[in-house]
């Protein structure tokens, strides 16, 4: 034990070992997945030389292209809608002073963070099935609605965090300088919320892109997204083409998450 300074967890015996084990467990499987996406042969365990053939196969695969486009489209639409709704929810819950049931509203908005996804999935399955029977409609509307609802809390949290750091005196100053409430919102509040809104959109986008359970239960025939397609393929033989698709998917997620951090850090100031 050091004589000076505060308690440090890094001095616990075995700390280094625990840390390394954790990181290995976190990243090794992914690293292996990525490595074998470049394997010349079919094996997932024997290296047979470098090749991009599985990437070529993935790009040539029409189905992969279709589900990828559907995934991106769905994520874009759902995250967009969720961001608009979340922005309105933030304005309605944080700029109006304390009111009765405020905590309750927060909890209700954040439902998807608390209810197990499989429960939501089953509930949606039953709900959507009955609507399909009633209306006969089987389009993408169900997936859009389900993903939008699911993404709202993820968009809501960063937007609210941003608005809460906004000095209310700025809006007062705008009003004092002859801005109508709408002008004050348009020229002051909204531009200052943009970093939070972008962050909320990106988080929602990634979440929608990721989710398997909800999609699996809500989709109709021919509405596979990339994750549900991959899940379906895994029930058959696994070729390194799946590794290549997974690697590309990983790359996309990384790009979006990195952009999210850059936005919240640099523009958030």
């Amino acid at each position: 034990m050091s004589e000076r300074g505060a308690f440090s967890v890094t001095r616990i015996p075995g700390f280094g070992l625990i840390a390394i084990t954790t990181f290995v467990l976190l990243y090794l499987p992914i690293v292996i997945l990525v490595i074998f996406s470049f394997n010349e042969g079919l094996s997932q365990s024997v290296w047979e030389g470098f090749s991009l053939r599985w990437y070529e196969a993935a790009f040539a695969n029409r189905q992969v292209r279709d589900v990828s486009i559907r995934s991106l489209w769905l994520a874009g639409v759902a995250a967009g809608l969720a961001t608009v709704l979340a922005t309105l929810a933030v304005l309605g819950t944080t700029r109006v002073g304390r009111f009765r049931g405020q905590t309750m509203i927060y909890a209700l908005i954040n439902q998807p963070l608390m209810v197990p996804e499989i429960v939501t999935g089953i509930a949606l399955l039953i709900f959507v099935a009955s609507i399909k029977v009633q209306t006969g409609y089987t389009g993408m509307g169900y997936l859009v609605a389900a993903h939008t609802a699911f993404c709202i809390p993820f968009a809501y949290l960063p937007i609210r965090a941003r608005l809460e750091t906004l000095d209310p005196a700025l809006e007062m100053a705008a009003a004092d300088l002859y801005a109508s409430p709408v002008q004050a919102f348009r020229h002051i509040t909204l531009p200052l919320m943009v970093p939070g809104i972008l962050a909320g959109f990106m988080l929602g986008f990634v979440i929608s892109l990721d989710t398997v359970v909800i999609t699996e239960f809500v989709k109709s025939a021919g509405q596979d997204t990339l994750p549900t397609y991959m899940l379906g393929q895994l029930r058959r033989t696994i070729t390194p083409e799946m590794n290549a698709i997974a690697t590309l998917f990983l790359l996309l997620s990384l790009v979006i998450v990195t952009a999210f951090f850059l936005i919240t850090r640099t523009r958030g100031r």
Partner: peptide
């Protein structure tokens, strides 16, 4: 406040952080 011929210098200044000095001054 937007209807009164009165302007305020706030204790915290409340300058608009996303605008330049000139844009701040021209806002009213």
């Amino acid at each position: 406040p937007n209807k009164r011929p009165v302007n305020t210098v706030f204790q915290s200044y409340a300058l608009f952080p996303h605008m330049t000095v000139a844009q701040n001054i021209g806002f009213g």
